[in-house]
Deep mutational scan, measured.
Amino acid sequence: QDAKLCERHREKLHYYCEDDGKLLCVMCRESREHRPHTAVLMEK
């Protein structure tokens, strides 16, 4: 099964943002929008 990719950055989605309920890639996780949020690394 292929991992889902971030629509914005075309990177694999490794994080779940608990504040927004969205899946994030590393680039999104470090963005100004999500940096202050609680995001957890998803298990494989």
Score class of each variant (00 low, 15 high):
K44E: 02
D2K: 13
R8S: 12
R10I: 06
Y16T: 03
E33I: 13
T38K: 13
L24H: 06
D19W: 04
L13C: 14
R8F: 15
E33K: 08
L24P: 12
C6V: 00
K44C: 08
V26D: 13
H14G: 12
C17W: 02
E7K: 06
A3P: 15
G21L: 00
L13T: 12
E33S: 06
M42A: 11
T38F: 05
C6Q: 00
E30G: 06
H34V: 02
L23I: 04
S31I: 06
D20F: 12
A3H: 15
D20G: 04
C6R: 01
V26C: 12
D20H: 02
Y16V: 09
Q1M: 15
M42L: 13
L13V: 13
L13P: 15
E30R: 09
D20E: 05
E7H: 07
C6T: 00
K22Y: 01
L23C: 03
L23D: 09
R29Y: 03
R10V: 04
K22Q: 12
L41Y: 02
E43K: 09
V26Y: 10
E33Y: 04
R29G: 04
K4R: 13
D2E: 14
E43G: 09
D20Y: 02
E7P: 13
A39W: 07
R32T: 13
E18C: 10
E43L: 02
D19M: 09
A39K: 10
K4Q: 14
K44M: 04
E11A: 06
H34K: 06
H37N: 06
E18H: 10
G21H: 05
P36W: 04
T38M: 04
A39N: 12
E11H: 05
K44V: 06
T38N: 11
D19R: 06
R29N: 03
R35P: 05
H9W: 00
T38R: 14
K22P: 02
K44H: 08
A3R: 15
C17T: 05
H9I: 00
A3V: 00
R29W: 02
C6L: 01
R35S: 09
H34M: 05
Q1F: 08
L41M: 11
M27C: 14
M27G: 10
M27A: 09
A39C: 13
G21C: 06
E11W: 02
H37V: 01
L24C: 06
H9F: 00
R32Q: 12
M42P: 06
E18N: 11
H37L: 01
R10L: 09
R8H: 15
R35F: 06
H34L: 05
E43F: 02
R10D: 10
R10G: 13
G21S: 08
R35W: 06
L13S: 07
H9M: 00
E11N: 05
C25F: 00
G21R: 10
L24M: 06
E18P: 04
R32C: 01
D19G: 07
H9A: 01
H9L: 00
D19H: 06
C28G: 05
R8E: 14
Q1I: 03
E43S: 09
C25Y: 00
H14V: 14
P36N: 00
M42K: 13
A39R: 05
E18F: 01
G21T: 03
D20W: 01
R10Q: 14
T38I: 07
H14A: 14
H34Q: 08
D19A: 11
R32F: 08
H34A: 05
D2W: 02
A3D: 11
S31G: 11
E11F: 06
C25Q: 01
E43W: 01
E7R: 06
D19C: 03
S31M: 07
H34D: 03
C6W: 00
R32P: 14
R10K: 12
S31T: 09
Q1A: 13
K12A: 10
A39I: 11
A39T: 14
E7T: 09
H14L: 15
L41H: 08
H14N: 13
V26W: 13
E11Q: 10
P36E: 15
C17Q: 05
E43R: 08
L41G: 10
K12I: 08
R32S: 14
M42Q: 11
E11S: 07
H37D: 05
K44A: 15
A3G: 14
L13A: 15
A39L: 07
C25I: 00
R8M: 10
R8G: 08
D20M: 01
K4E: 12
H9D: 02
L13H: 01
Y16E: 07
C17F: 01
Y16H: 05
C28E: 02
C6A: 00
P36H: 11
Y16L: 07
L24R: 04
L23S: 10
T38L: 06
L13F: 14
L23Y: 12
L24G: 08
L41W: 07
E30A: 06
R32D: 15
A39G: 04
R35M: 08
L24T: 04
K4C: 08
P36A: 14
R10M: 12
A3K: 15
P36L: 08
E18G: 03
K4I: 01
K12R: 12
H9G: 02
D2Q: 14
K44G: 14
Y16S: 07
L5P: 03
L24Q: 09
L5A: 04
K44L: 05
L5K: 04
D20S: 09
H37W: 00
L23Q: 10
A39Y: 04
K22M: 11
E30V: 01
A3W: 15
E33P: 03
Q1H: 03
D20A: 05
E18W: 02
D19T: 14
K44P: 08
D19N: 06
E11M: 07
L23A: 10
H14S: 15
L41T: 08
L41R: 11
M27Q: 14
Q1G: 11
R29S: 07
P36M: 10
K44W: 03
